[in-house]
Amino acid sequence: MDGATGTSARHLGTASPVLTELTGRLLSANLVDAATRVAAQAFVACVPLLFAIAAFTPQSVREQLSDSLRALFGLTGAADQQVRQVLTESTDTTFRETSGVVGLLIALISATGFSRAMSRVCERAWRLPKTGTRIAAWRWVVWLLTLVPVIILQGPVRDGFGVGLWLGTPLVFLVGIGVWLWTQHLLLAARVHWPPLLPGALLAAAATTTLSLTARLYMPGALNRSLAEYGALGMLLPLLSWLIVLSAAATFAVTCGAVLAQEPPLCRYVSGEREP
């Protein structure tokens, strides 16, 4: 009994600093507020960007994006028709180009807000000061521009390039690891080495992969019900709600990964900032 009690006490002693540190960082980051800010900025950046893509990209790119959005959200019925309508080439070329220019300008203006919000999440997770604008500005643009092809290619990746979901799911997870590993390194201005970023990347990839799979179960019905009840504006609430949940999961995962990488016993393996 004494041996078992001693082992339990050691485990509790090891876990307690991790839980205390994680709680402190989540409170300082204000999880709900940070997730809402990231989700709102993502929505403001992505919706006008969708119109810009519809206006200026080739038909093959628009079709691929439509397939990827369908794969990501499991779109059916009225919701699928709404997306197809946006991405279908309009016969009114002048209006299409005008809406595309407006959408592109709004996307460029709001893009830095999305990147800054995500950058702040990473900095608070690692308790680092804000990066100077001159150092970070190009990183914000590169991060957002890189996300665009990642989203466009979600369709074939999720389908396992024709093999099926059994291959697509691990591929989505592996792509997620790479995206979150690179996201943290880029937005933190390379102030944290690659190995300590791995726990957060693994947790964030697992969370976003799980949510993307469950989105296919919930989102089609929610979107179609909202469309039937409120019209085209009805799509906004389910999409924004999903983005908030996704942002909260990512914020929690990145913060948890940072704590794990800096606290015993994992810090000795990933060369975290703190020694055991």
Score class of each variant (00 low, 15 high):
Leu108Phe: 06
Leu108Val: 13
Leu108Ala: 09
Leu108Asn: 01
Ile109Arg: 07
Ile109Asn: 10
Ile109His: 10
Ile109Cys: 13
Ile109Gln: 08
Ser110Trp: 08
Ser110Lys: 10
Ala111Arg: 12
Ala111Phe: 13
Ala111Gly: 15
Thr112Trp: 14
Thr112Phe: 14
Gly113Asn: 13
Phe114Gln: 14
Ser115Ala: 14
Arg116Ala: 08
Arg116Pro: 03
Arg116Gln: 09
Arg116Trp: 10
Ala117Leu: 15
Ala117Ile: 15
Ala117Arg: 09
Met118Tyr: 13
Met118Glu: 09
Ser119Ile: 12
Arg120Leu: 11
Arg120Glu: 06
Arg120Asp: 03
Val121Pro: 07
Val121Lys: 06
Cys122Phe: 10
Cys122Gln: 04
Cys122Trp: 03
Arg124Asn: 05
Ala125Gln: 05
Ala125Tyr: 05
Ala125Trp: 06
Ala125Ile: 13
Trp126Thr: 05
Arg127Val: 08
Leu128Val: 10
Leu128Thr: 07
Leu128Phe: 04
Leu128Glu: 00
Pro129Gly: 07
Pro129Thr: 15
Lys130Ser: 12
Lys130Pro: 03
Lys130Glu: 11
Thr131Lys: 00
Gly132Ile: 14
Thr133Ala: 03
Thr133Phe: 03
Thr133Asn: 02
Arg134Asn: 06
Ile135Val: 04
Ile135Pro: 00
Ile135Asp: 00
Ile135Thr: 02
Ala136Pro: 04
Ala136Met: 04
Ala136Cys: 04
Ala136His: 01
Ala137Cys: 09
Trp138Ile: 11
Trp138Val: 11
Arg139Gly: 08
Arg139Gln: 09
Arg139Ile: 14
Trp140Asp: 00
Trp140Gly: 00
Trp140Met: 01
Val141Asp: 02
Val141Lys: 09
Val142Tyr: 03
Val142Glu: 01
Val142Ser: 01
Val142Thr: 09
Trp143Ile: 13
Trp143Ala: 09
Trp143Phe: 14
Leu144Val: 11
Leu144Trp: 02
Leu144Ser: 02
Leu145Gln: 02
Leu145Asp: 00
Thr146Gly: 13
Thr146Phe: 13
Thr146Asn: 09
Thr146Met: 13
Thr146Arg: 06
Leu147Phe: 07
Leu147Trp: 05
Val148Gln: 05
Val148Tyr: 08
Pro149Tyr: 11
Pro149Ile: 14
Pro149Asn: 08
